[in-house]
Design a protein around this nucleic acid. Structure first.
Lengths: 182, 182
DNA sequence: AAAAACATGTAAGCTGTTACATGATTGG
DNA sequence: CCAATCATGTAACAGCTTACATGTTTTT
């Protein structure tokens, strides 16, 4: 029996992009290199092995395009199991750790959320987002207040910046909620 | 001849914390587990090997505390070479990639910047920060404007959130600049 | 004719994760 | 006395980076 296979954040990013339309490894690399999805590396040493793993896990399937050409390319598309895995991932509830340690993955999840085609689910994700952030903000504020008087100015300002960003995210999510009925 | 040894972001985080005061591996783990420096893992499998590497590179030196006790602890402090390496890192100019792909490291650098005790240098870092962000924002805005009409709402909103955060960072840096004369 | 972009991959090595392992001291 | 915290580490593994490797097609 195979080990369970944990899909990485990069794996879900690839799965989500392939759900939009079938693409080759090269297409995916270009996206990571040229769009705002820059925090993923478009290096071939990351993309091709990740595609291979998704294929082995049965979540995507590749097919050779332009077979006749001397420069063939392989385009990948999600299998039904891949689509299911993507839906499960998108539907995960928001936990405290998602907003503290995995904000990037959480925003990626949100970015692909439309493909669930369920405004209620998206509104629910956003409410979870707001809930966990608003729960965390007082913690940060307390940390700031508890800083010893000797704390260097830049350390204090860096923490204030973090607090600032969480407030900005909370406001953004509240505005975003307006797009989804509830 | 030894290979050059590239200090990782975690390495600089440790070096910076040890510059504030000598600490043990356990002290450092606690900091990562309980304060806003949460995006570093406090797992022993990360901390202890990282300390070992810094020691081998001659950047920190450990000394056994409470030698008599049955529960001794080893406290580390930076060597002169470690302090120099830290200063060089803190003094690096801000590049575009720092604000796009390495924002976390850049903010860590800022958080420790006070230890340079050079308000001019800190102001310069902040000006570089503002410059690169304000240079990047129009790019993001253009990407948003260039999004095809068919782009799913959540994808668009995620990109807007990113833009939002960069604006918040720019405002923060301008406010922070007021603390440093220039 | 050359450069840039297309297209796919492998190999070595480093970092970090997860899980395991051990034992001491302190507080309730 | 038991649980929590103190304190340090190792081993197996996964993942990504960097560098290398190869050849084609399009653009200048």
């Amino acid at each position: 029996m195979k080990p369970p296979h944990r899909t990485t954040t990069l794996g879900y990013a690839l799965l989500g992009l392939l759900h939009q339309q079938p693409r080759s490894g090269y297409d995916l690399r270009k996206i990571f290199d040229t769009t705002a999805m820059v925090h993923f590396s478009g290096s071939p040493g990351a993309i091709y092995p990740a595609l291979r793993k998704l294929e082995q896990a049965g979540l995507i399937r590749g097919s050779v395009d332009r077979r006749t050409s001397l420069r063939p390319r392989q385009v990948f598309r999600p299998t039904p199991a891949g689509t299911r895995a993507l839906h499960v991932w998108l539907s995960r509830p928001v936990h405290r750790d998602d907003v503290i340690r995995r904000m990037d993955e959480l925003m990626l999840r949100f970015a692909f959320h439309s493909l669930l085609d369920d405004e209620g689910a998206t509104a629910s994700l956003l409410r979870g987002f707001v809930r966990e952030i608003d729960d965390y903000i007082p913690d940060l504020r307390a940390q700031l207040a508890a800083l010893p008087a000797t704390t260097p100015t830049t350390a204090r300002l860096a923490l204030e910046s973090g607090l600032d960003l969480y407030r900005a995210r909370s406001r953004w999510a509240r505005r975003a909620l307006a797009h989804f009925g509830a």
